[in-house]
Every structure is written in C-alpha cells, then in structure tokens.
Design a protein around this nucleic acid. Sequence first.
DNA 1: CGGGCTGTTGACTGACATCAATTATCGTGG
DNA 2: CCACGATAATTGATGTCAGTCAACAGCCCG
Lengths: 245, 245
Amino acid sequence: MAGKQDFKGDVVMESVHTHEHSIERELECVSQVPIFQRLSAEQMTSVAQVTRPIHAEKGGAVFSTGEVSQTLYIVNQGQVRLYHLAEDGREQVLRVLNPGDFVGEIALFTDEIHASYAEATKTTELCTISRASLTALIKKLPPLSMALLGALADRLKSAERQATLLAIPDALPRLAGYLQELTGHTTGTVDLPMSKQDLAAYLGMTPESLSRKLRQLATSGIIETIGRRQVKVTDSIKLSELAPS
Amino acid sequence: MAGKQDFKGDVVMESVHTHEHSIERELECVSQVPIFQRLSAEQMTSVAQVTRPIHAEKGGAVFSTGEVSQTLYIVNQGQVRLYHLAEDGREQVLRVLNPGDFVGEIALFTDEIHASYAEATKTTELCTISRASLTALIKKLPPLSMALLGALADRLKSAERQATLLAIPDALPRLAGYLQELTGHTTGTVDLPMSKQDLAAYLGMTPESLSRKLRQLATSGIIETIGRRQVKVTDSIKLSELAPS
DNA sequence: CGGGCTGTTGACTGACATCAATTATCGTGG
DNA sequence: CCACGATAATTGATGTCAGTCAACAGCCCG
C-alpha cells in the first residue's frame, strides 16, 4: 500500500480548458464506460469536458480513508480493490472494481468521508467527475440519470445479495452461493475477481477455511480449481443443492 | 402471512382519471415521502397524478415471491418487513421499511421477479408508482432523479455496512456494531426494528446466541434491555471498543 | 536460481449452533 | 381487567464446525 496517488495538483486547472485536442483522452475514457454508452456523440462530448482522467500504477492508492471526496471514480482499464482496514490489521474487501464499475456515488449526495481504501491491483486508468459537474450533467441529460439509477440499483442488489450470503452461518453454503452467482447458475470456467485470501475475507471466513471448502467441493466432484484464479463448475445441480434458497 | 393484498383489480383504471378530488389522497401520500419533499407544490401534484395508494392490514402481504413487478412501493405510514423464506422454513429478514422507505427500485430498471416477501407488520399505507410513470417523471423533474439517486446511495451505504458487519466472524462485535449504528453512536434508548429472532437472522446468528450476547453486554454494564423490543445503551464508549474499526 | 508471497495442509481449541426445557411477555377473550 | 394460552425469549448441556497457530508447498517475481 504505497503513498497515495498525487493527482490533486492538476485538479486546479478544472474544466475551463476546453480545447478539442485536450478532450481526446477524456472522450476515450467516457466512451468505454457503460453508464455513458447510451449517450449520443455530442452528449458524450459534454460529459468528456467535465471528466478528468487519472492513472494509478499497480499497488498505488486511488484514495485513502479519511479523505473527503466529492468525486465519482469510474474505472476504465485495470482493476481497483476497495477495502477496509480492521484494527487487527486484517483487510476486509468490500468490492473489486473492474472496467465500467464506479465508486464514490455516496459522496456525491451526502458530504462524506471515505471509509475505505482504494488500491489499484494493476496498472489502471480511471475517469473522475466532480460532484458539481455531475449534478449539472444530470439536469441536462435525463438518460444519464436513468443509467446512473440503473447502475446504482444493480450495485444495491449485489450488496444485498452479499449481505444475505454472509448471514449464513455455515461456510460451505456461503461459498456455494457465491460460486453459483459467479457462474450464473450454470457450469463453466470463471475467473475469480480477486485473490483467494481477499475472497476469504469477502466471504467472511479465513483463507484456511476457504481452501478447505474448495477442496471439499473439488473432491465431491462439483468443481475443479484451475491455477490460482480460476474455478470450473462441473456440477451446477449439486452446487445449487448446497447453496441457500 | 395471510393471502396477498388484492389491489390489482383497481389498477385497471390507471392514471387517466385526473379529477381534483380523487387526487387528494394521493397528494397526502406524496407529500409525506422524503423523496418528494423537495419538490414544489405543482411538481408534487404531477407526481400524485401517477401515484396509486394501497393499504395493507397488519399481517397482510404487500407482494410475494415470484411476482413480476414494475412498481415502486413507498411506505407512507406503518411498517413493512421484507424477507426471504429459506428452504428450512426459517425467515431471513432483508430489511424493514419504515415511513419514507421504499422498495422495488431494482424492478424499475431490470425486469425482474421479486425474490422476497413483503408483509405489513402493522396497518400500513403505501404509495405505488409504475415503472412507466416514474421514468416519465424523471425526465420531467431533474430534482426527483437527484433525490432518488441520493436515496439509493443511502441504501447502498447501509447495505454495504451490513455486509461489513456480517463478515465479522465473532458474534459480539457484530452485535456491538449493529447496536452502535442503531443508536447513532451515543447513549440512549432505541426500539429494535424487529423481533429478536428476526434480528438474530439478520445478524447471521441464532436467537440463542443473540440472547446470550445481549446478556453479556447487559452484565458488563453496557446496555439494558427494556421489555421485548427496546435496548438502552448506557456506555457507548465500551460499546465502541467492542465494535469493529 | 533464489526469495517472498500465496495458498495449502495438519492438529488443536474455542465459540457458536443445536437440542431440549423453562420462563417471560403479549395479545386475546372471558 | 384479569386470566389464560400462544408465542417469544431465555437458559442449560452438549457437539461440531471453523478459527488459530504452525509448518510446508507452489508459483511468480526479480
């Protein structure tokens, strides 16, 4: 966890600077992001004008706990890991941001301090939009607010799903439920979105338990673990029997 | 869990009916709801015109699993309990809706089937808005989309907080964290939003464990339990020492 | 090729679930 | 308004699953 990314310096120049050539990079960023996908070319341009791209190297911090943020961060390329630091030093992974995912939406509506760290797990490109700019955009572009609402609703759904999973006291159905969701209830190979120790924390168990439970599923002929970051579900029926509801 | 509320029959008449007198009840409903609070009188009226009030008696169902919904439900008075039914018959409480809270936002953006039951825990008044009406409203009223986004962001925040709590393996800090949040980090008496057995499920433990942990907190002089549904926090400092981060 | 980090495996322990029985509380009807 | 019954909540005894500590193996990196 290196020192936090020093991109603040540039922010001073703000969005007064609207020459065409300087917009190029921003436009690329905007056009990649699902939230903006439905917008017309000119609408995208107006989004791009208030967008600011930032870059984070692997292991670099995008932001840290305690920072007040009025900024929406959207991942363009790479991956960002959001986590808490418990007082015992353990890291609780909240979420992993892949391209198209975003964070900071809460800060956009209620002044609040980041309660988590955001760290790039690989070289990452992000777009940022300030609160003021976003509220202005929403007023101008109704389709944008629909897209944002849809994205938030999706996030909410998955957060509630995670909470439901975590409420299960036994580790095996908890893991089964997670895998089920990950594979979309069918057989096939999927990449794990994070390392196994992070996944263990995410699922509310220790790395040791996760390892044992994965082994248990493997010896039952339900899954196969391929390499370090892939799992192949071979028997989705048995998996769903282990999973809740 | 009685038979589901039969309000579908009336829905046929839709929002073509716009006589002033029929709007009265709808307006009362709309004006109570925080999401609409910031709107002007005339904006509220246009909301009220697409709103449909429904009523549920204590124990009555607002909706059930499997129903396809394109409707947003907003609680005006009373209380609604959202829960899953696990295959072992136990009820997992997802959330409790108090006046101003709403549910159904996911269905508004992605066609989807209710995965939960909604049951009134007391005599309850709700407003409903159909998907079509809401999308139309959002286009017309930017402040509404801001309010909705804000409300969704709040919900998201609390869902993520619940997930973080549930990831804690030990029952005591989990309970402490919950109580802390419930009381707003100060001392004082609070009503539990649900029965203790529901609360136990919500916190991912058994009723027995919850009872024991509450007793432990009580004998440590941190809380007092009053009656069946109230807890008084007497030492918020000790409580926060037990709670995480 | 070597070092460190990630992941695995094993033995042990403790906390929570489970099962069973008792007590408290609330709502209801007499 | 009180007594009763039903349900909720508590308490106790016991078993078990998962956490802890420790050592080892495997992969990726330099």
